[in-house]
Design a protein around this nucleic acid. Structure first.
Lengths: 259, 259
DNA sequence: GCCTGTGAACACGTTCACAGCA
DNA sequence: TGCTGTGAACGTGTTCACAGGC
């Protein structure tokens, strides 16, 4: 499932929304899919919705592993991950997973498999652009290392911020982007700039060869089709909750139907 | 139609369950209920996917309005929001929307309608729990006011932080939660605590009557079914991007199909 | 002509229910 | 007797394509 080109909102909720603005970028009709028997045969092309849940399973598995568990049933793991067990089993079946019937899944094996599928074997270097309020918080977030990433560089356009040290890194000017992206082998970047700067930053990132962007700026980014964009927008999340609040409050005004 | 009730861990998936408990509330054909709680056209029960996109349309509309536009076609608006126009039109049709054929949509009217549906007429008060790195950044984020929300109170469990002033608000101890939630009429809360504290905070929030939670802690929350939880997890977003990176790099190893 | 609104077709995702194996 | 793995049924969401009105 390639991401569609243009831009697509990919926020918090499990938005599998594959909004393809144009045409069938990814093989719709008769796109000779990579041969089944193809030896390279890494990824057994997973549904996007499954991909979005694997990280949650992984987190739950790590918790179980820390707790000393070595085998887990689909029911237990599903509960820990907040899904139902049928969905979990279906998801894991896409990994040609090796559970043991009558027993469950080996925790360690499953962790390895999921990490492998997600490409987390190699610690990935991430660039963070924009060290304002949010950017600083993200830079300071400690949870990355344990989950397969490290922030390799910080950038900002504001000369007064360049040189600041945040979380052990020195803030560099955005003009140095290309150089650093190359030397650090960065493929993933986080945009934490104001909205008005985000598109220019995205363009610069793409020019440097970055192919995955996590966008915290409240705007739509336009990027080539080979670049993946995911979006996190706090206000949008709150507005969705607001809708449900609104709905709940009008529902309580209605007579209670049967229970 | 059976919906699992019980304590559903509303964690990751964060799709508020559409309780289909046999309510024909909205316009069943021919059953014209004479009186609704709110006669002024309440919620025409929208698909969840549509709800998730309305905020994006709203943002795009505000940009257009600021630019002086007063009418917009579905094609233009769709582009600005990063979706395709068929989807946009379908979404708006759920709002019994009033576009003009051959012309387009009135920007101002559409803004009003979406804001109304999302319940953004009333500025909603939001509580933020956890003023660490991320919490402080969220508190300092200025984008709320213009989008229908304001942070009404900050809480933390750490006594050394209580009393700090952040973004014009004084941090209060979590023990004061119930009191403040009541006086400020807070229905929505943001959890920005470490994972190990999040469930306890969620329980406390629910006890106070909070019915919508935006969870930044990397864990699954278990809440009663009438409470909506949405989750934002940075590491998960990056891991999803990592998968696509991984896939792209194995694909380039394959012979290029035609483009 | 242009553009909205929408049924119908299609694609995707979830759930069920049971076959198959330890 | 479990519990996994999975086809098939079902439901949701997206796209198409055209009817309807300006």
């Amino acid at each position: 499932m390639s991401q569609q080109r243009s831009e697509r909102p990919a926020g918090s909720d499990s938005r599998p929304a594959r909004s393809a603005a144009g045409l069938s970028a990814d093989g719709s009709p008769g796109h000779g899919l990579p041969e089944r028997g193809a030896p390279a045969s890494e990824l057994p092309d997973l549904p996007e919705a499954t991909v979005a849940r694997l990280p949650e399973y992984l987190r739950a598995l790590h918790v179980l592993a820390d707790g000393g568990g070595d085998v887990v049933s689909s029911e237990e793991l599903a509960q820990a991950a907040g899904v139902n067990s049928a969905k979990l089993r279906k998801d894991l079946s896409y990994l040609r997973s090796n559970g043991t019937r009558g027993v469950g899944y080996d925790v360690g094996q499953l962790i390895d498999k999921i990490e492998h599928v997600l490409g987390l074997n190699q610690h990935r270097a991430v660039a963070l652009v924009g060290v304002g309020n949010l950017g600083q918080a993200l830079a300071g977030y400690g949870g990355f290392g344990s989950r397969g990433f490290h922030i390799a560089a910080l950038f900002d356009a504001d000369p007064t911020r360049v040189g600041d040290r945040i979380a052990g890194l020195s803030v560099r000017h955005i003009d140095e982007l290309a150089e650093v992206v190359a030397t650090e082998h960065i493929a993933i970047a986080v945009i934490a700039t104001p909205a008005h700067a985000a598109q220019a930053v995205a363009d610069a990132l793409v020019d440097c060869g970055v192919t995955s962007i996590l966008n915290f700026a409240p705007c739509v980014l336009s990027v080539p089709e080979n670049v993946d964009v995911r979006k996190v927008d706090l206000a949008i999340e709150l507005q969705i909750l607001s809708f449900h609040e609104h709905r709940k409050s009008t529902l309580t005004a209605l007579p209670e139907a049967i229970s």
